[in-house]
């Protein structure tokens, strides 16, 4: 038996989230007393593939087939499941990233495997039983899910672990999964990458603002602070609804969920729907004129004060800190 990690490539490079999944797989393999291997679909250099070894993967099965160049959940599910069956994997680990969220449940059905989605920590393995904790109720509680099926699928929530890079290299072996052209039903027409700013859902630092800023013309200081810090900008629903800010900045229950290391909320009261999208952030800073704003209850650090005074000072102090 083994633990199989699915490592996703984009333009020949293994995604950051997949290195984390590989590390999770290797740590799970240690707990299960076995080895961790990986499967990669699509073109990537041998050097890139071998780099998975630094996170504890011993062998990479590589399907170097041009049809895998773009993510197709149906074809990918067949290939990953075949890898799990052929290479004797009892646990399959994927990232709970945008593609993993669709691929993992498909693989679970193919393998008739118990599936734990969005695991936030390493599992506990007792005999055939595997238990893992995950956030539920939008981060308001945690659930420990258990499964005892022959094969198990785990999707690890991005930024849950801090992968430690070692010095190992993985061996690479060719793999030819039995997928036919008919399995590929997804054709990519265009890709629209946000340029010039940090993508919100992957950002380590987020600066967010809400109605307290009084109007869209006042966002200059928020953008400046974000730029200084290398942070992404976000906003509350109230301001995206009135088009002060673009919809792709809206975080909360019906917008995006973020879990950065630092979330700075300026002039956002902290309605429960907003908190649902941000309360998995490691550290929350709240700046608000209203000391009764509910956001302070979810904050690690708070400043009761006027954003128009505090934010410019924060920019200045951050510049000093960076220069020091």
């Amino acid at each position: 038996m083994s633990v199989l990690a699915f490592a996703e490539v984009a333009e020949g490079k293994i995604k950051k989230a997949s290195f984390e999944a590989a590390y999770y797989a290797a740590k799970t393999a240690e707990l299960a007393g076995t080895e961790a291997v990986a499967v990669v679909l699509g073109a990537a250099s041998n050097e890139e593939l071998a780099s998975l070894g630094a996170y504890g993967i011993t062998k990479v099965y590589h399907a170097n087939d041009a049809r895998f160049a773009n993510f197709d959940s149906k074809a990918y599910a067949k290939a990953v499941s075949e890898a799990a069956n052929s290479f004797g994997a009892s646990i399959v680990v994927l990232s709970f990233n945008p593609s993993g969220k669709l691929l993992a449940p498909r693989v679970a059905v193919r393998l008739k495997a118990g599936y734990i989605a969005g695991a936030g920590e390493l599992p506990i393995i007792e005999g055939t039983k595997l238990t893992a904790g995950k956030n539920v109720y939008s981060g308001k509680a945690k659930a420990y899910l258990e499964t005892s099926t022959d094969k198990k699928v785990l999707a690890v929530s991005p930024n849950s672990l801090s992968p430690v890079k070692g010095s190992g290299t993985a061996s690479v072996e060719a793999f030819s999964p039995a997928v036919s052209d008919a399995d590929f039903g997804t054709v990519v027409k265009s890709v629209d990458k946000l340029t010039g700013s940090v993508p919100l859902t992957e950002a380590d630092l987020v600066v967010s603002a809400g109605r307290g800023l009084k109007g869209p013309e006042n966002w200059g200081m928020i953008e400046e602070l974000a730029k200084e810090m290398g942070a992404a900008t976000a906003c509350s629903r109230a301001v995206s609804d009135v088009d002060w800010r673009p919809h792709h900045e809206h975080v909360g229950q019906t917008g995006f969920t973020v879990k950065p290391n630092l979330y700075i909320a300026v002039g956002i009261s902290g309605a429960i729907q907003h908190l649902a999208g941000v309360n998995q952030s490691k550290v929350i800073v709240v700046i608000n004129t209203d000391p009764e704003a509910p956001f302070f209850k979810a904050a690690d650090y708070g400043i009761v004060g006027d954003a128009f005074e505090v934010v410019p000072k924060l920019i200045e102090e951050y510049k000093k800190f960076k220069a020091a």
Binding site: G114, V136, E146, A298, G302, V310
Partner: peptide, 21 residues
């Protein structure tokens, strides 16, 4: 194929540390 073994609530509410404006 899976079941909830148990739930857990966060141990305590966060304590906000205030900094003067």
């Amino acid at each position: 194929l899976t079941k909830v073994a148990s739930f857990e609530l966060p141990s305590k509410a966060k304590e906000c540390k205030y900094v003067q404006a």
